[in-house]
C-alpha cells in the first residue's frame, strides 16, 4: 500500500518537474499577429472602422473584438485576407461591396480654404489658398476623411462608375 502511494507521489513529482522545465524551455512568444494585420490594412488611418487608426483596428482584430469586415476601404479582398490570417471562416457571399467611392470637389462650392488638404491621408488633394482644390483620382482611396473638414460641403463622395473593364458577370442565382 505504502509502495503504491509512494510510487504515485514520486511519479507525480517527476512529471511535475518535467512539465515545469518543459514550460521554461519550450516557452514560445505569441506571434505578433497584430503587426501582420497592421501591415495588411491600408494604413491611411481614415477611421471608418471606428477604431483609432489602422493600428487600433489591427489590435481589435487581433483580439477578436472587430469583425474581419471592419475596413470598408479594404473591401472584400481585404476581409478575405484578414479572415484567412485569423483562421476565421467568413461568408463572403453575404458581404456586398458597395463599390468604390471617390471624393470629388464641387467647384462652385469650394472656397479654397485648404482645410481638407491636411486631412487627406494620401496627399490626394491639390490646392493652394484661395484656389479651387482638385483631387487626384489615382491617389484618392475613398476614405472620406476630408468630407467632414470642408466648411462648405464642397467635398462629395461619388461612386466610381462601372466601366466595361471593371464589369463583373453577376453570379447566377442558386437553384
Amino acid at each position: 500500500m505504502l509502495a503504491a502511494i509512494l510510487s504515485l507521489t514520486i511519479l507525480g513529482a517527476l512529471l511535475g518537474l518535467a512539465l515545469g522545465i518543459a514550460s521554461r524551455l519550450l516557452h514560445v512568444e505569441t506571434p505578433p499577429v497584430q503587426a501582420e494585420l497592421e501591415a495588411m490594412l491600408p494604413g491611411t488611418n481614415c477611421g471608418q472602422c471606428g477604431f483609432p487608426g489602422c493600428s487600433g483596428a489591427a489590435a481589435a482584430l487581433a483580439e477578436g473584438s472587430a469583425p474581419p469586415t471592419c475596413c470598408p476601404p479594404g473591401g472584400k479582398a481585404l476581409a478575405a485576407a484578414i479572415a484567412e490570417k485569423l483562421g476565421l471562416s467568413l461568408d463572403l457571399s453575404s458581404l456586398t461591396d458597395e463599390g468604390p467611392k471617390l471624393a470629388t470637389i464641387a467647384e462652385d462650392l469650394c472656397i479654397g480654404c485648404c482645410r481638407c488638404l491636411k486631412s487627406c491621408p494620401t496627399d490626394a488633394i491639390l490646392g493652394a489658398p484661395k484656389q479651387i482644390h482638385n483631387i487626384l483620382k489615382e491617389a484618392c482611396t475613398g476614405c472620406a476623411a476630408c468630407v467632414d473638414h470642408c466648411p462648405t460641403e464642397a467635398v462629395v463622395m461619388q461612386p466610381v462608375p462601372v466601366t466595361l473593364q471593371h464589369w463583373v458577370m453577376p453570379k447566377p442565382l442558386a437553384a
Partner: peptide
C-alpha cells in the same frame, strides 16, 4: 497553469 491539466486529471 503549467501543471493544471495533470492535476485535474489526477
Amino acid at each position: 497553469p503549467q501543471v493544471r491539466i495533470p492535476v485535474f486529471i489526477v
